[in-house]
């Protein structure tokens, strides 16, 4: 169980405290068993809080770091319409990061601290953003595959047992419905374009396919935290279950695109009624997660630079607010 790895209740508790804890636990268990929602000031197990904090902050970091690979093409977007769309999308991701940081803050962690952890390389984010975007078609593949996988993951999270997380996800899912469509349409346009454009699209799909499948996390038998998260109604479906659904959707959609998925082993298993895919390179996944992806240091460095270059601006705004408040109270 995940909670074994996490800090549990402090050793010494007075009888009153023990009673309070027990009552809290009973209340918490009832809320969970009724599939209701835990709200910020409710009693919750330390491990539940910690798991959520880790998951929500990682999710927020992923949105913020995820801005970079796409921001990389804003200035080079090949039409003004695409430029507008891409700018709006990258901007949305900043917004999604903020919704999620807000949700995480209700658990008692400041955004400043989370940002510092990210910059210090102590926090994780979705590993896929450590791959480079080397062609315009990557904007299509990210929208279609990466956002597609993210949506599959996120829709069930709208029902996560922690209220603020679920509410953030509702807002995010609503906004993201355009993200995947615009990616699909970029690829469709390229696929129906010149041979060079079509090649560009296929190449991008080839590169982003496997990493997008790995976004669902390790296989179920190698995902020790999943079971507890599901018991807590944070997670609603297992990694493999969601991955299989996603593959099924992509199989249909790639035909409309007139492209192919770089996986000869995709098949629908009539017995299990599930989609199956070829082997994934989990070693590479772990390597990238461990910081050895093509862009890990570049991504964190950009965030650090932006944050540190902005320090004097944030300071100035605080100083101004303080002076104004003083003026007001003096008047």
């Amino acid at each position: 169980m995940a909670s074994q790895n996490l800090q549990s209740v402090p050793a010494e508790l007075s009888p009153e405290e023990q009673e309070r804890e027990a009552a809290g636990q009973a209340y918490f268990d009832r809320i969970i068993s009724e599939d209701s929602r835990i709200e910020p000031r409710d009693w919750m197990p330390a491990a539940y809080r910690k798991t959520l904090l880790r998951q929500i902050s990682q999710h927020a970091h992923s949105e913020i770091i995820g801005m970079q690979p796409e921001a990389n093409w804003i200035t080079r977007a090949p039409s003004l319409k695409r430029k507008s769309i891409l700018m709006a999308k990258v901007q949305d991701e900043a917004g999604h990061g903020l919704y999620l940081y807000s949700a995480a803050e209700t658990l008692g962690q400041s955004r400043d601290q989370m940002m510092e952890d990210l910059i210090a390389g102590k926090a994780r984010y979705s590993s896929i953003f450590n791959y480079p975007t080397i062609s315009w078609a990557d904007m299509g593949a990210i929208g279609w595959l990466v956002d597609g996988a993210a949506i599959c993951n996120q829709v069930p999270l709208c029902r996560a047992s922690y209220g603020p997380y679920g509410r953030a996800m509702v807002r995010i899912c609503k906004e993201e419905s355009f993200h995947q469509r615009q990616g699909f349409e970029i690829l469709l346009e390229l696929s129906n374009g010149t041979p060079a454009q079509k090649q560009m699209a296929q190449d991008a799909v080839n590169r982003w396919y496997a990493p997008s499948l790995m976004m669902f996390g390790p296989p179920d038998d190698d995902s020790p935290n999943s079971k507890q998260s599901m018991a807590w109604n944070i997670k609603r479906f297992s990694n493999d279950e969601l991955r299989s659904r996603f593959v099924g959707m992509m199989v249909e959609q790639v035909r409309v695109l007139g492209l192919t998925l770089p996986d000869k082993d995709i098949r629908f298993n009539e017995e299990t009624k599930k989609w199956e895919h070829g082997p994934l390179d989990w070693n590479e996944f772990k390597e990238v997660l461990a910081g050895r992806g093509p862009c890990n240091s570049q991504r964190v460095e950009r965030r650090r630079e932006a944050h540190e270059n902005g320090a004097w601006v944030r300071e100035a705004a605080v100083a101004y607010a303080r002076k104004q408040a003083q003026k007001e109270s003096a008047a």
Partner: peptide, 11 residues
Amino acid sequence: SSTTAPASGPA
């Protein structure tokens, strides 16, 4: 609102 994150304003 039930959001009660610790606020740390200038004050």
